[in-house]
Design a protein around this nucleic acid. Structure first.
Lengths: 140, 140
DNA sequence: CTTGAATCTGTAGTAACTAAAGATTGTATG
DNA sequence: CATACAATCTTTAGTTACTACAGATTCAAG
């Protein structure tokens, strides 16, 4: 009673997901994708389920989850006892990380913007930008 | 007519800059810091100028410049023909990168925030967060 | 002079891939 | 069926910016 499944080559999966072949193999090595069926010659053949799993990984990566967190997320999705609570926790924590990163970048942006405007045209022989970076004290 | 200079050990430089010893040596290997003077026994001795240079690197890194860009910046600072213009260009480009990264993070934040609020309490047996990530179409 | 802290070099590990070499397999066509 | 060529295979090394050892010296204080 096994379901009839159309299996895909790694190239086909790559095309359908936009994920490079090497990366797919890398995810397998990294334990995120289960080792797929093989042809007699050893070529990988993927099921639709495997493709879905890869999509999950790709989506999570797009959202900035580390591979390690993706691994955890997948483990939760795999295990029966998925309470949703842990997933919730991980996502919240990640959201906090994303916000913290934004704050860092905002600070960078501000300083850079000030530096650039202080040196608006780039025609001076001495460079205020460089001087600023060389200053020993804290940034203006 | 050489200037009298108080030389510092690598540990002293580390303490004054907050940069780890290994990182200082790494910057030397990476060609960002010039090989310093050595004692007879081979220990590094740094001048104030070297410390300033390290400060420059650290400051630029804090602002998110890649080591490669820092290298370029230092080369410009070193060379006589520093018009400031190139420095200006690099900084502007970097500022654009910083802004682009912020935009990416904003998108992530939005999606994550929506996901979390859709799954507010984490008490459900099935997890909307997980389901969402498994969806094959584009994210909501 | 002796100890203990500091430093030395060199290698390997981290994250998340990417690339390339060289061998093998799969498949389309004559 | 033969053959050519594309696709895939494994393994290894490169990337970025460090960090962390191990084992050998060297420095500085008492």
């Amino acid at each position: 009673m096994a379901k009839i499944q159309a299996l895909m080559s790694i190239g086909a999966v790559s095309k359908r997901t936009g994920c490079k072949i090497e990366t797919i193999r890398y995810y397998e090595r990294a334990g995120l994708l289960k080792p797929p069926a093989r042809s007699q010659g050893g070529h990988r053949h993927y099921s639709e389920a495997a493709l879905k799993r890869l999509t999950f990984i790709l989506r999570a990566r797009q959202l900035g989850f580390s591979l390690d967190r993706v691994r955890t997320l997948l483990a939760l999705a795999d295990g029966e006892g998925r309470t949703c609570d842990e997933v919730h926790q991980i996502t919240i924590r990640h959201l906090q990380d994303v916000r913290a990163k934004q704050d860092d970048l905002k600070v960078m942006e501000k300083v850079l913007d000030e530096m650039v405007s202080r040196c608006a045209d780039g025609t001076l022989p001495e460079c205020p930008l460089i001087e600023e970076l060389f200053e020993v004290g804290p940034p203006a």
